[in-house]
Amino acid sequence: MSAYSPIDAPPHVLELLSALHRKSLEQEAALSETGKAVSTALLAELREKHNDGAQAVFDELMLDKLIALDEDKCRFTYQLINAMGATNIVEAGTGYGVSTIYLALAVAKTKAATGKPGVVIATEKEAEKARIARKHWAQCGANVENQIDLREGDILETLKSGLPEQVDLLLLDIWAPLALPTLEIVKPRLRHGAVILIDNPISAAEGYADLLAYLRNPENGFRNITLPYTNGFEMSVYMPQTAQ
């Protein structure tokens, strides 16, 4: 981590984040010749070796891997939340909860500044990942823990109810086939000007083809830009013709 960080957090939280990002990068380097592990590419490689059993092999391989959202993308998201004054966030694909820490820190800051209520709704299907994510959040302290509502299980079920009246930001860092169905569940709650962020839209373009086609169709109300981070970082702003 560089000497300066835009993240407003106690030293022990910054140290934890730095350590988790280092571990994630080490794991990705061991998984991929490019040094960046992309789930769709890894699964394609496994299918060549294991055919129908590839998904099970992939799931077992990834069970103990952080594969966290890149640190620069996390910092951008933190700054964006502060700039938007966003307080209600949905994170699709929490994993071990690294990016969730940034979301919680930013939401805590905007809640304090605006006096508005808010929550980070995190999602994770694997119980062990959820357990370790909670451990990481506990290490950060109440200012992080108290912002997060973790939904365990099938995301297409856990997000069906209990969403805020208005969602400010949706972070999609999830298995590609689930991305568009997740957006469709959350979309009715997106406020005018809400932001959708998608990791790896360049390297995972094939897996995200349906999602990206949907977002880039002007009739669906989104305006898009691919930010020049490693493997891309898609930023879509929800601007339907009639403000909600």
Rank of each mutant, 00 (worst) to 15 (best):
V120I: 07
I7S: 13
C74F: 03
V120P: 01
F222P: 03
A44F: 10
V38P: 10
E15A: 14
A68V: 07
A205L: 02
Y4N: 15
Y102L: 02
Q27L: 14
E126L: 12
P188I: 09
T158N: 12
L163K: 11
C74P: 01
N88C: 11
G207Q: 06
K111M: 03
I198D: 05
L150M: 06
E124Y: 08
N88S: 11
K111V: 00
I174V: 14
S99N: 07
G85D: 05
K65R: 14
G162H: 07
Y229L: 06
E234R: 01
E45D: 13
K73H: 09
G221Y: 00
L16K: 00
K125T: 11
N146H: 13
A37T: 12
S5H: 04
E48S: 15
G207I: 06
L156H: 12
A127H: 09
A122Y: 02
S99T: 00
G93C: 01
P164D: 12
D168A: 04
L178C: 11
V186N: 05
S5L: 04
K160A: 11
R22F: 14
V13G: 04
T100G: 11
Q241H: 13
N217C: 06
L212Y: 07
E184R: 14
A205R: 00
L197H: 06
Q244S: 14
Q27P: 07
